[in-house]
Amino acid sequence: MKYIENCTVNKNEKIIDDIYRMELKSNKIVKDSKAGQFLEIKVNNLNYPLLRRPISINEINLDENLLVIYYKTVGKGTKILSQVKKGEKLSVVGPLGNGFDTSYEGLNIGIVGGGIGIAPLVELAKSLYQKNNVNIYLGFNDKPYLINRLNELSNIVKVSTVSGSYGYKGFITEVLEKDIKEGNLDLLYACGPKGMLKKIKDIAKEFNIRCQVSLEERMGCGIGACLGCSIEVNGQMKKVCVDGPVFWSNEVNLDE
């Protein structure tokens, strides 16, 4: 069930540079949410910016009825969001999208994230860890974040930075590929920039590993009505907002 809910901001803090973390108090959305789903948040009550902002769920905290999000200030909407104070209310629509399929046990799993695409991997790791062997691969440009939290929810976390300031210098897909060649991964999950997802799709194909990718696309409504975020899956037009954002990498066309 999807809801429109006025959520009180419990916390809104800068993590590094342009990455922010927000906690939203929720009574309805939080109860129906799962890993890989997202929210559509109206950053103010005005007609400008007009549209809601699609932001993935980082953590679902049912004990305290909190939804946690991480977002990057990329435009006017997210900049306004970063100014919102504790106690203010935001109109939130959610939970949206299909989320990850986490119905697996006893597998050796690789979870790969890049940039702000790392945010939804926390709830994902939570739903897989302890039932599976969870290996996490995180790629950053320069400054890493969420490493400690993900360390608590996995067997191992490997990090790369393009600048070389932390971990392996280069792309995280290089670390992943090396590990796959040396060991066995049964299943992959990935979220991040399109270039990274394309590379992981290729790796998954080459080594014949199943892979779920979570996509980002410009959205109008987030509920399947505007058809702004259509994508080709197995030759059919699908909507990233309702049929995704998670798709099997061998089925989704990432070339457009």
């Binding site: 400008y48 007009l50 410009r218 505007c226 702004g228 259509s230 994508i231 037009m237 457009e256």
Partner: peptide, 20 residues
């Protein structure tokens, strides 16, 4: 009909441009 290629949506001041 499959529609146009994405991006098909652009937000503008108090409006949306679409080319679905």
């Amino acid at each position: 009909k499959k529609g146009n290629k994405t991006p098909r949506i652009a937000e503008t001041p108090s409006g949306i441009l679409n080319s679905i």
